[in-house]
Computed example of a mutant assay.
Amino acid sequence: MKTIELATGMTAAYREAGEGEPIILLHGYCGSGEYWNGVIGPISAYGRVIAPDFRGHGGSSAGEGTYGMEMLADDVAALMDALKLERAHLFGHSLGGYVALAFAERHPERLLSFSLVHSTAYPDADAAKANRLKAAETIAAEGVRPFVEGLVPKLFAPGHRDSRSAQLLEAIEIGYGTSAEGAIGCALGMRERPDRVLTLAETQVPVLLLAGELDEVIPAERRFPAAGDRISAVTLAGVGHMGMKEAPERFSEEIVAFLERVRGTASV
């Protein structure tokens, strides 16, 4: 893991592998760049993979207050500046997808493509907004560890909560690295995010929407909010909200196939 100081005032931790076109992997809530460990190898054959930790997560510095998706998107842009990357492919898992959409809105000229991985362009419904506040209150009162222990099993498909216990336990361990400030800040930021279906529909770069058939976090009706010539939609059978851990080989194949389509090097 490496660290670098950003112009936005935070210290960013990140992992990287490979060479060539930048491919930035943005993790989900209460995760870190370690979420991608099982897929970085295959993907890095197609470019320079960078897997950062969002502020307040993993090895990146934290701060108090609401972590808006726009703030996190600007952190990604600042990381690209610090690493001297003009443009990149962004793959955003869950929270990372919300950040990728904010990035597409604020920094469209810096995108080669982007992907929503187990994510959506829709805003939180009222019930979800109430749950975000409850999460923030729970974390403030009880800390991150019990919250993560309750959250992570829900991210896996029901049949994987036992059969993939090693991956589940690893995800919980990664979650312990989230600061209370980061977990609360992101919960409040996700609660406030706007509807970005139009951003998705009107983007001028290729998009991959990658969903899990058994995802209990992103229901079927919210997985593919836009369609068009530039948008590819893929569902991973038998997978929940954690495709990179539940089915890393198939997950990597879909990412690589998308990158090949974007570059015009394969007709798959």
Rank of each mutant, 00 (worst) to 15 (best):
M1P: 11
I4G: 08
I4S: 01
I4A: 10
E5P: 00
M10I: 15
M10F: 09
T11R: 14
A13E: 00
Y14M: 12
G18Y: 07
E19V: 12
G20P: 03
E21C: 06
I23P: 02
L25H: 01
L25P: 01
S32G: 04
E34F: 13
Y35P: 03
P42N: 05
P42G: 09
S44Y: 11
Y46E: 15
I50A: 05
D53V: 15
F54R: 03
G56F: 10
H57Y: 11
S60E: 08
S60N: 13
S61M: 06
A62Y: 07
A62N: 07
A62V: 03
M69I: 08
V76R: 00
A78C: 12
M80R: 04
K84T: 15
L90D: 09
F91M: 10
F91L: 15
H93C: 06
H93M: 06
G96C: 09
G96M: 13
G97P: 06
V99W: 02
V99S: 01
A102F: 00
A104G: 04
E105D: 04
R106G: 03
S115M: 07
L116W: 02
L116D: 06
V117K: 03
H118R: 05
S119T: 01
Y122M: 11
P123S: 11
K129G: 03
N131D: 15
R132N: 03
T138W: 14
I139Q: 09
A140I: 02
A140Q: 15
P146T: 07
V148D: 14
E149V: 08
E149L: 09
G150P: 12
F156S: 07
G159A: 13
G159D: 10
D162N: 07
D162C: 05
S165N: 09
A166Y: 13
A171D: 07
I174L: 03
Y176G: 05
S179T: 15
A180S: 14
A180Q: 14
G182L: 11
I184C: 03
A187L: 00
G189Y: 05
R191M: 12
E192T: 02
P194K: 12
R196A: 00
V197Y: 00
T199Y: 00
L200D: 02
A201M: 06
T203E: 00
T203P: 00
T203M: 00
P206A: 02
L210W: 06
E213Y: 06
L214V: 04
E221S: 14
R222Q: 10
F224C: 03
F224Y: 13
P225A: 12
A226C: 14
A227S: 15
R230I: 05
I231N: 06
S232E: 14
A237Q: 11
G238R: 10
V239R: 06
V239T: 11
M244D: 00
K245V: 09
E246V: 12
A247V: 06
P248E: 14
P248K: 08
S252E: 02
S252A: 15
E254V: 01
I255Y: 02
L259H: 05
T265F: 01
V268C: 00
V268A: 03
